[in-house]
Design a protein around this nucleic acid. Structure first.
Length: 482
RNA sequence: GCGUCGGUGGUCUAGGGGUAUGACUUGGGCCUUCCAAGCCUACUGCCCGGGUUCAAAUCCCGGCCGACGCACCA
C-alpha cells in the first residue's frame, strides 16, 4: 500500500466526516462495524443520486417504481434460495484458521484443503438477519415456529418478484414490464470493512425487467446504444474494448436485452459523474455467479484506494425467480401471450441492473475530489455534477456590512422560493467562503457587492473555473439551473 | 472469524505514571470592494470496562472500533 493511496483514502474519509457527509453509526456507543449514517450533506447527495436514477429508469425507460417491505417471511427466502445459500454451516481449520462453508467436500471432521488440518464447527454462517414476526402460537410446533420466522431482505429484488402477478395485471398482461425499487437491504457480513464498500445495511436501487425469453435478442431500443464503446473483461479471456453491438454479436454478452442494460448502466454512471476511464464491465466467471444468475456483468469503478470495485451488477436471472416462487407458492407466474392464431403461456425472463448506492456515493466522493494550488493555498474541490451537488449555490455579501447583508438575504430568499437549495454565508473573508463551498461541491457562489445596490446585478462564480460573470438578479436562477 | 498494528478537542497531531502539545476548523469581535490574509477573543479532548498504583490518558487484562494481511463476499 503506497502512502499516496493512504493519503487519498484518509482525505476522502476525513473530508466526508468533517463536512457532514457521512460517519460511522452509533459513535457515542463505540460504533458498530458495517453501519454508516449519512449526515446532512451526505443525505442530500444520496437523494440527488436517487433522483437522477429515478429520472433515468423511471422517466427515461418508463419503468414504474414500487415500494415493498424490508422484512419478509421465511417462505420467501426458502423459495428464492437465499436461506440455503445464505445460511449454511461453517467450519474452521484448527491449523491454518481458514474459514469454510460446509458443502459436499468440506465438513466437520474432514481435512482442511489448504493445510490438511482438522476442521471444526464454526457455527452458523448466516448472512441474513433473522427476526420474529408476531407471537408464534404453539411453542413446540416446529412448523408454527418456522411460519413466524422473518428475515430482513438481503436484496430488494424479491419484493418485485413476489408481486409479479399484481404487477403484470397492472401492466395489462403485457411484456416487457420494467419495475424499479430503491431501498435498504441487509446482510450480516462476517467482516464488513472499507467504509461504504461493505456494509451490513445498505441502499440498493434495482430494476427488474421482465421479458419474453424469445425476445431477448430484440431490444426495441438497442439501436440507441449499439455503438457505445465498452471496456469489457469477459469471464474467460482478456480485457477488450468494443461496441455493445459487437459484444452481443460475438456472444460475449449473452443477448441484446442484457447488452442494452449493460450499456445503459454505463451511460447512467457517466451521466452522474463517474469518469469513463475509471469504469469497466467485468463478467462473472461461472464459479462466482450467484445461484440465480445465467450471466452477470459487474460495472466496476477503479478506486485509487481499493482498486477495482463492483458498484453495479447487471444479471440475466433467467426464469429462476419467477419459477421458484411459482412452485413454492403454488401461484401461476406465467404470462399468457395471445396472438391472432394462438395462445401461449410462458415464464418471463428477468434482466436485472442492481446498483449499490452507497458504493456509488463512495466512488463519487473519491473521483470528484480535486486539489490544486491557488496562490499560497491549497484548494480542495468536490467536482460534483450540478444535478447531484448537495448545495446548488451559496449567496454571500461581499463584505460583512448591513446594507450588503440585507440585499444578500433578499437574493437568498428569492432563490429558495424558486426551490433551489441555497446556503447563505457572511462569515470570514470572501475567499474563505468560496473555499468552504468548493470543498462540499457547491457549483455556484452568488456574491452581492456595492454594484448590486446600484443596478441589481450580482456576480456568479463557477466552482471549477473560479470565473465570474455578472448577471441581473432576476436571471440568477436560470444560470444556476442551466 | 484469525493475525499484526493502532484509538488524544470537530479534524489532523505531539507526548506518554503526577492538571495534555501544536496546527487547522468553528463561534463572537475588529479589519477587509472578490478567492482559506491579519489581529483580539471564546468553546471543545486522552474509545469503554476492570486491574495494578498514593496517583492511570500513560502499565496490565478484556471489550468495542479502525487500518492492513488471510479467509469470507450467496
Amino acid at each position: 500500500m503506497s502512502s499516496a493511496k493512504e493519503d487519498r483514502k484518509d482525505e476522502v474519509a476525513e473530508l466526508a466526516l468533517r463536512r457532514g457527509f457521512l460517519w460511522q453509526s452509533f459513535e457515542i456507543y463505540g460504533g458498530a462495524a458495517g453501519f454508516y449514517d449519512y449526515g446532512p450533506l451526505g443525505a442530500l447527495l444520496k437523494r440527488g443520486l436517487e433522483t437522477e436514477w429515478r429520472r433515468f429508469y423511471g422517466i427515461g425507460e418508463g419503468f414504474y417504481e414500487i415500494e415493498a417491505t424490508t422484512i419478509a417471511p421465511r417462505d420467501v427466502f426458502e423459495a428464492s434460495g437465499h436461506l440455503k445459500s445464505f445460511a449454511d454451516m461453517a467450519v474452521v481449520c484448527k491449523g491454518c484458521k481458514t474459514f469454510f462453508r460446509v458443502d459436499e467436500r468440506i465438513n466437520i471432521g474432514e481435512r482442511c484443503p489448504e493445510c490438511g488440518g482438522e476442521l471444526v464447527d464454526a457455527g452458523e454462517f448466516n448472512l441474513m438477519f433473522q427476526t420474529k414476526i408476531g407471537v408464534p402460537k404453539g411453542e413446540r410446533d416446529e412448523s408454527a415456529q418456522k411460519k413466524s420466522e422473518g428475515y430482513l431482505r438481503p436484496e430488494t429484488a424479491q419484493g418485485i418478484f413476489i408481486n409479479f402477478p399484481r404487477l403484470l395485471r397492472f401492466n395489462r398482461d403485457k411484456l416487457p414490464l420494467g419495475i424499479i425499487q430503491i431501498g435498504k437491504a441487509y446482510r450480516n457480513e462476517i467482516s464488513p470493512r472499507k467504509s461504504l464498500i461493505r456494509l451490513r445495511e445498505f441502499t440498493m436501487a434495482e430494476a427488474e425487467i421482465f421479458v419474453d425469453p424469445r425476445e431477448k435478442n430484440r431490444h426495441p431500443k438497442f439501436d440507441t446504444v449499439k455503438d457505445r464503446a465498452m471496456r469489457l473483461v469477459p469471464g474467460e479471456g482478456e480485457e477488450t474494448e468494443m461496441s455493445v453491438e459487437a459484444a452481443v454479436k460475438k456472444g460475449i454478452i449473452a443477448n441484446e436485452y442484457l447488452g442494452y442494460h449493460v450499456a445503459k448502466v454505463g451511460e447512467f454512471l457517466e451521466r452522474i459523474g463517474i469518469p469513463k476511464d475509471k469504469l469497466r464491465f467485468r463478467q462473472h466467471r461461472k464459479d462466482e455467479m450467484a445461484h440465480y444468475a445465467r450471466d452477470c456483468w459487474d460495472a466496476e469503478f477503479l478506486s485509487e484506494r481499493y482498486g477495482w470495485m463492483e458498484i453495479v451488477g447487471v444479471a440475466d436471472r433467467g426464469d429462476y425467480d419467477l419459477s421458484v416462487h411459482a412452485s413454492f407458492s403454488n401461484t401461476d407466474m406465467s404470462v399468457h401471450i395471445q396472438s391472432d392464431a394462438e395462445q401461449e403461456k410462458l415464464i418471463p425472463h428477468v434482466i436485472e441492473p442492481s446498483f449499490g448506492i452507497d458504493r456509488i456515493i463512495y466512488a463519487l466522493l473519491e473521483s470528484s475530489l480535486y486539489k490544486e494550488q491557488v496562490g499560497k493555498e491549497k484548494r480542495k474541490v468536490l467536482r460534483f455534477k450540478k444535478e447531484i451537488a448537495p448545495i446548488k449555490a451559496a449567496v454571500f455579501p461581499l463584505l460583512n456590512r448591513d446594507e450588503l447583508k440585507e440585499k444578500a438575504k433578499e437574493v437568498f430568499q428569492k432563490l429558495r422560493e424558486e426551490s433551489i437549495f441555497v446556503e447563505y454565508d457572511a462569515s470570514g473573508s470572501i475567499g474563505r467562503r468560496y473555499r468552504r463551498q468548493d470543498e462540499i461541491g457547491t457549483p455556484y457562489c452568488v456574491t452581492i457587492d456595492y454594484d448590486t445596490l446600484e443596478d441589481d446585478t450580482v456576480t456568479v462564480r463557477e466552482r471549477d473555473t473560479m470565473e465570474q460573470v455578472r448577471v441581473p438578479v432576476a436571471e440568477v436562477k436560470d444560470v444556476l439551473l442551466l
